[in-house]
């Protein structure tokens, strides 16, 4: 499935400055693995040692938090947008 991943600015250091990346993947986990292949170091920013999404990072498939879908096993379809949203605290 061809999906778009939206990358927040703190992670764009890893993606050569790109904010949107197209990947082919059937689940959220697979999309993260693909991103890791393209940009080594990407995965550890999103997932912890156990492979769970870090608690201060949220992943949204279109407008829904994947925690309320099937987590990283959530299936993707063509045209989906996966947004990575880390907690930020600047004021």
């Amino acid at each position: 499935m061809a999906i778009t991943v939206r990358v927040p600015t703190p992670l764009r250091r890893l993606t050569d400055g790109q904010g949107e990346i197209e990947v082919n993947a059937s689940t959220v986990r697979e999309a993260i693995e693909k991103l890791e292949e393209m940009y080594p170091g990407f995965k550890e920013r999103i997932l912890d040692d156990k492979g769970e999404v870090r608690r201060f990072v949220n992943l949204y498939l279109n407008d829904e938090d994947i925690r309320f879908l099937k987590g990283t096993e959530t299936e993707l379809k063509d045209g989906d947008v996966l947004s990575i949203v880390p907690a930020i605290a600047g004021g």
Binding site: P8, T9, P10, V85, I88, A89, G90, G91
Partner: peptide, 8 residues
Amino acid sequence: AMLRFEGQ
């Protein structure tokens, strides 16, 4: 909250 070029 905000950081760099982003806001929430």
